[in-house]
Amino acid sequence: MNIFVLMKRTFDTEEKISIQNGEIQEDGAEFIINPYDEYAIEEAIQVRDAHGGKVTVISIGDDETEKQLRTSLAMGADEAVLINVEDDVDELDHTGAAHILAEYLKDKEPDLILAGNVAIDGGSGQTGPRVADLLNINYVTTITKLEIDGTNVKIVRDVEGDSEIIETSLPLLVTAQQGLNEPRYPSLPGIMKAKKKPLEELELDDLDIDEDDVETKIETVEVYLPPVKSAGRILQGELPDQVKELVNLLHTEAKVI
């Protein structure tokens, strides 16, 4: 089976975030594989182990992205592809990213494409379905279970807490929701092996993509931090009195109940 994973290198949002000159400061910050993409990588490896085939992890990024791709290979992916856009574009939106990924994938005959359902930095969740649409293949988002039998696919999809039992078929793009699996940590032998696995690097030219083809349709005007919240009130006194006071405050002061 020909399996592809769409992976994004993201700012670890557990980091403290600061802004300078209207931009999020990235210097010294920790970068990680987008956590939802980790589920996608893990699932791809499990599908390959069960059904045979090859897992290729693709990422659009810059030189730094090689680190997260090597981690993917150390987890057990077979090959990695870095589409390095550092020299070509300053800003990429979902329309552009999906276009690039689809141009790469269009002649690769994928059976299964996996991605995270959302990236924790931009938080938009568009790229997976857009890529599926451009490739004219079906997609199912926020999946928590995947069973493949030949070309038949049975999926459990999380829909705001409810579960949809879905039947569809390959080729297919799915996006991972938490609960799909427990991503493995790369093993030491895995890390050693990953150094020798193929990591192809491409630029937009290699895909016959013009910079104009990936021009953004959305413009970011400003980035800012939410106002700092002042410390709240810790209630005092006997517990029953505290609870009475709390309900009173929520009713009369905060007016939320």
């Binding site: 975030i17 924790i120 970011t220 005007v221 980035v223 939410p226």
Partner: peptide, 11 residues
Amino acid sequence: IYSGKAFEKVK
């Protein structure tokens, strides 16, 4: 953006 730790204004 960034899991609600920042906001962006877009057009």
